[in-house]
Design a protein around this nucleic acid. Structure first.
Lengths: 142, 142
DNA sequence: TATGTTTATGCAGCAGTGTTGCGTAAATAA
DNA sequence: TTATTTACGCAACACTGCTGCATAAACATA
């Protein structure tokens, strides 16, 4: 990872009023490198057990609270997270893109260009957030 | 629950080549009565600990395999299940409706009348299934 | 650069969730 | 009614996520 990216990571943390620690920098690096969604166990594997499990949980929770990452619904018991785009903040959080889970490689990625369509709910329902998860085969595995 | 519904439950099981057992009948009753999505812990509560945990897990897995129920993505660690409509089968499974999770009462329901809109994926991606989960406030809690 | 304060980390331990193996009990087929 | 197949219940285990507390690191201030 280039120094330039490392510098932007510290900027990200500072912008959210978070102190710069090894764990936080490393986890953000993993998110940037992976270019997709990661679950908790991925960090333990990718970071080579250099961090305590609890630290990873707390770091992810902190990032969630600050709007740095968002969670992605799954039909299994793990929770997946991905980096938010720059237009998300602590108090105005939104995912306007859809998620794609590849059945071949198992990766989940954010399709940032693809917007969530309008959905007409029955009378009496108020929507705050819409999650769309498409499963299938990605362009790498095709 | 009426005898008529009980009869249709045994028909459902027979149609999927499943033997009729107390556990399976009771779990299907709970699905029908709840009219929404249930997670594993719900069965233990609703059924009053009359079944072993393992039996409930295995029963749900069997129903999933046979296309009797489907799983609903969540951003927590529990897996939610709901009854499939009659046009699902073991080999042709599909959810063409959207799911609504109420932030007030916590219930997740299937909006069967509301269809999933067309989604234009980037080139190279093939979609097999689309899950849409809308969160907000349901008409009961409004 | 040194120092005090705040914040994050690591460890131990706990609770909840889901799985596997195996002997027994129940359901179906004959 | 009996034989065979299938499901159930128990014990034990692995994995995931959380809390409390002592220690270590990061930051702000001088």
């Amino acid at each position: 990872m280039s120094n330039k990216t490392k510098a932007s990571i510290t900027d990200m943390l500072r912008a959210s009023n978070l102190s710069i620690t090894d764990t936080r920098v490393k986890i953000l690096e993993l998110f940037i490198d992976s270019n997709g969604a990661l679950e908790h166990s991925s960090f333990e594997k990718l970071a080579g057990h250099s961090f305590d499990r609890v630290t990873v949980y707390r770091t992810l929770q902190t990032f969630l609270d600050k709007g740095i990452i968002h969670s992605i619904p799954t039909t299994d018991t793990s929770i997946r997270y991905a980096l938010c785009k720059s237009d998300c903040s602590e108090h105005d959080h939104h995912d306007h893109h859809i998620h794609f889970k590849c059945e071949e490689c198992g990766n989940t990625i954010c399709l940032d260009e693809t917007t969530v369509p309008e959905i007409q709910l029955p009378k009496g329902y108020a929507a705050h957030n819409i999650d769309v998860v498409v499963s299938g085969v990605c362009k790498e595995c095709k």
